[in-house]
Amino acid sequence: MAHQANQRPLSFYLLSSLMAALLVFLYAPMVCVYILSFQGPDGGMSFPMVGWSTHWFEVLFRGTGGQGMGDVPGSFRRSMRLAAFVSVLSMVIAVSAGMAYRRSFPGANFVFYSAITSMVLPGIFVGFGIALTFNLLGWQINWFSSGIGAQLTWSLPFGLLIMFIVLGRFNPAYEEAATDLGANASQRFRMVILPIILPGVIGIFVSSITSSYEESARTQLNVGLGNTMPMEVTGLLTGSSTPVLFAIGTMTTLVMFVFILGAVALMGSMARRRAARPDS
């Protein structure tokens, strides 16, 4: 049997088709959303398109959706405010905890398994528990206390895992070398550790923003007055059945797209600067 080195086996073509099928399966609904958000003013939530317009975006921005159309810009602002606090806090807390795990210390397993527990517990359970605790203690739930706390239970475990990845690849000799050269603890962190792990730290920031922005099971009982974006959209699902939902989908995807591309570009430029500095 002649066997050419470069000839792909049959399995390659079968699996390529499976990959293509998965991508179609993932993209088909999304593409429908993006297209239908440009539905004409008289069109509905299904095809065919009744003309093309930006009508539903205008409805979204003017807040003139009529009945069932809540406060989308307001909830977007609230979500962003929450995400900003949660991501900065997650970054600081996770980096600090990650540094602790470079040594073994009593209680390391306790905190690690708490993080795993926090990650695998049903969100509704955690959200309920926090609300109940605040309730029994007579504290008012509020976005900046119970709200941020609830979201941290979701973002921090991922932050810690990212730190494990980052510091697992961090050669301890860098720090020993810095010690050898006379750097004190804060100099070691600022001048050696942080610059080397910075891409991972940005990774924690991005993952925290997206998880905060998407989270609703833990958040909804704890955020206090005013909806966050996912809660608002969920409300709209039952209240409204116009393509304005699709307009929200397109807009939020765009926001995410810009944000994530920005973060990736930032990390990429850091990596490039590290890889190619010109000769003197």
Binding site: N171, A173, Y174, E176, A177, A178, T179, D180, L181, G182, A183, M191, V192, P195, I196, R274, R277
Partner: peptide, 29 residues
Amino acid sequence: APIDRGTSMMFQDYALFPHLTALENVAFS
């Protein structure tokens, strides 16, 4: 402490700080 001993160590894999140039590495201390 390592800095007060009068020793200096050259590591097996060199442990050059990857984000600093040769000059910055040497000037680190």
